[in-house]
Nucleic acid binder design. Structure first.
Lengths: 167, 167
DNA sequence: TTTAACTTTCATTTATTATTGAAATTACAA
DNA sequence: TTGTAATTTCAATAATAAATGAAAGTTAAA
């Protein structure tokens, strides 16, 4: 396979993966592009490589910055902004995990907490509801703290976790 | 909060969470509904509770069955089918993890493998590409096997994993 | 300051994904 | 075997999400 082909395939695949994880295609593609670029890229560069509009590029670059997984870079004497991806993959994964926990898991926990606290009525339905939502709360809560624990190692956390699990 | 309110809030929240994870709203809602129902529900019941069409119900029930997280039940002397959710939450999480690994992680690994194997050209760009995609392959591969290890405990895997990680 | 390069915003358009509903199919009680 | 209740399929439609592009907003060099 040629480099250009491979690069394209990688960007497309990463984009498709994004959509399956609730991240929009362009955002994932920009991220993919920046990851494999040895140099920082400008918005123009990105628009050119991915054939996307200025507005699209601008909005998704911002979103990536909000996630903390790409950064702006300034070149001396140049007005335009350049972008680079977080280069450490463990750090990348940590940031994604943290952000998803904050945006999705934590709010869900709040709701589970709330709905599982309804008052006991006599009905079987309400009883089952309380039981199940409380169980879910327990589970999600533990999963979230497990994720925190794992990613708290900061470096090579996957390897370290596997080591611990093998013992 | 009233039971009916709480139930509705739970179903809506679960549905919204689904969309953030690439699962469609109705599928997540049906699953939520079945989880908190003490009795098996028929397609009619589900259509009525969620205000959705027959076709929608049928397609999403099928998808849930494909994921292995809900089951059909037959009542003797009755023609219609009833549905129940996997009642064990650890088991539910294991099945979801397994399915997502199969559908998303494994295919991604194949692509990463493929694109990181392009032949060395002299260019910096190609070199960075190879390095990064190989690194990603390593990482995703390890994350996937970590997930496998964790969920292989079958029962109360979250608790067990946390225990191991605390040592 | 002005000016122009560059970026952001957002109403509109386009693309994607989900849902409907009726016809076709299936399957089972009589 | 029917006859029919129940389910599935899928083309058409609706709902949602993403992308465009031009105008407004910023910023810094001249």
């Amino acid at each position: 396979m040629e480099f250009d082909q491979a690069k394209n395939k990688f960007i497309q695949t990463w984009g498709a993966l994004g959509t399956q994880w609730g991240i929009n295609k362009t955002m994932a593609q920009i991220h993919a592009l920046l990851m494999v670029s040895p140099e920082a890229l400008s918005m123009e560069d990105i628009m050119g490589e991915l054939y996307i509009s200025r507005g699209n590029a601008s909005m998704n670059l911002r979103a990536l910055i909000d996630w903390g997984i790409i950064f702006k870079e300034y070149k001396t004497g140049e007005r335009r902004e350049y972008f680079v991806a977080e280069s450490n993959i463990d750090e990348l994964a940590r940031k994604i995990a943290k952000e998803r926990s904050k945006r999705e898991i934590k709010p869900t926990l709040r709701v589970l907490q709330e709905v599982s606290s309804i008052e006991e009525t006599g009905s079987t339905e309400a009883a089952q509801f309380k039981t199940k939502t409380a169980e879910l709360y327990e589970f999600v809560s533990r999963a979230d703290s497990m994720l925190e624990k794992i990613t708290d190692y900061k470096e090579s956390w996957i390897t370290k976790t596997i080591m611990k699990l093998m013992k």
